[in-house]
Design a protein around this nucleic acid. Structure first.
Lengths: 116, 116
DNA sequence: TTCCATACATAGATTATCTATGTACCTCTG
DNA sequence: CAGAGGTACATAGATAATCTATGTATGGAA
């Protein structure tokens, strides 16, 4: 039982699509952005993110383009497509339903209440 | 990309501990109980549950005992220990923090608002 | 020129969950 | 009573998601 990992729990795709629904971003930036927003909770690793970006692009949910940074370094920006936006809605709905049901079970946790 | 599985998302242990915090239960019953509460969302499979129960018992979070069903069949009931209860609190906190932060990111999803 | 941060990428290991299967016993039905 | 189906527990092997580790390349700072 060394399962003290990062339970991103299948929500990685959701988070990525969510970030990109606001503005185009590049990979490294998404990591920093999520790190900032969710700090201690978790960090998305490069080895997790890049394959997901590639897969989403293959599905047609994202499109990428190169853009030069002020520093002169090339960055690969991702733009969400219509297909990506509807995928986002779908995943968002799934997430909401799932978490609500888990929360309902949690709410009942604890010793059984004495009927008054 | 055939990833349309059951993303229990690492919350299985949390759900099991949560159920057992109310009353002792046996494996098959927990599956039915969760199925009833979360229906379409997902079903916990036996191949997922039993190994988790064994692992939790090895950690000392649960204790099991045999009890005969009215039918005469033997059932293996699980009882949550103090250790299990504190593990539950811990997991619950993690879950809450994590989902809240994801929700915060989701809340900002969508096209960037026009500043008024 | 050495080191560190940025930036992208991928192979291989781990972990979690599922699929499939097995055993055993009980109840119902023909 | 034989067989089917539900209950109940269990585990091996497959699949999927994530992490670890590493590699390449560049730019700026020490």
């Amino acid at each position: 039982m060394k399962g003290e990992k990062n339970p991103l729990a299948g929500s990685t795709t959701l988070l990525v699509l969510s970030l990109l629904s606001r503005s185009d971003m590049y990979g490294y930036q998404m990591i920093a952005e999520l790190e900032a927003r969710m700090d201690r909770t978790f960090t998305m690793k490069e080895g997790t993110l890049y394959p997901i970006l590639h897969a989403l692009e293959n599905q047609g949910a994202l499109k990428s383009y190169q853009k030069e940074a002020p520093s002169g370094k090339l960055r690969k920006y991702y733009h969400i497509t219509k297909k990506g936006l509807s995928l986002l809605e779908e995943k968002k709905e799934e997430w909401t339903v799932f978490t609500q049901k888990v929360n309902a079970v949690l709410a009942e946790a604890g010793p059984a209440p004495e009927p008054a």
